[in-house]
């Protein structure tokens, strides 16, 4: 069976770093790359804040192409939901889940709003948390 790597994107630079790492992993292992964008309350209503507006298919395709992944191995999914719940749902049967250190909005130096920490607690498949590259 083909391996599946699931990665969450929200338009933040941390998520882009995670996407880049996940695409590289998919290239190296011959895996299918499932890219999940969870649509929040405001984005659903067309009131998205700036980072969420960057979580678009064309942005994802460009990053994945740069990493050398064949476009046919990319599976782009937009689902209504809180990021942690959405990723857990899409991660069923996956080999690996990949996220950035901090989602859009969440603050450094606090545990508040951390999707990656919540995922670490609930994940049932291996989880990789990718640190952002220094700006």
């Amino acid at each position: 069976m083909t391996r599946r790597v699931v990665v969450g994107v929200d338009g933040s630079s941390a998520a882009t770093a995670a996407l880049r790492w996940a695409a590289g992993e998919a290239v190296a292992t011959g895996a299918q790359l499932v890219v999940v964008h969870a649509v929040g309350l405001l984005e659903h209503a067309g009131l998205a804040t700036a980072p969420a507006q960057e979580a678009r298919e064309d942005v994802v395709r460009r990053v994945v192409e740069e990493a050398g992944l064949d476009a046919t191995r990319l599976d782009w999914r937009v689902v209504d939901g809180e990021p942690c719940a959405a990723l857990l749902r899409q991660a069923g049967g996956a080999d690996l889940v990949v996220v950035g250190t901090r989602g859009a909005g969440a603050h450094s130096g606090t545990l508040l709003g951390s999707t990656s920490l919540a995922l670490a607690e609930h994940a049932v498949v291996p989880l990789v948390i990718v640190p952002s590259s220094p700006d």
Binding site: L42, A52, A104, G105, T110, G113, T115
Partner: peptide
């Protein structure tokens, strides 16, 4: 208790956002 303490402190330091919605 950790969440309650963090939320109270976060607000008292002026707040910010918890996620893109909140």
């Amino acid at each position: 208790p950790v969440y309650l303490d963090e939320l109270e402190l976060f607000a008292h330091h002026g707040g910010g956002s918890l996620d893109p919605d909140t």
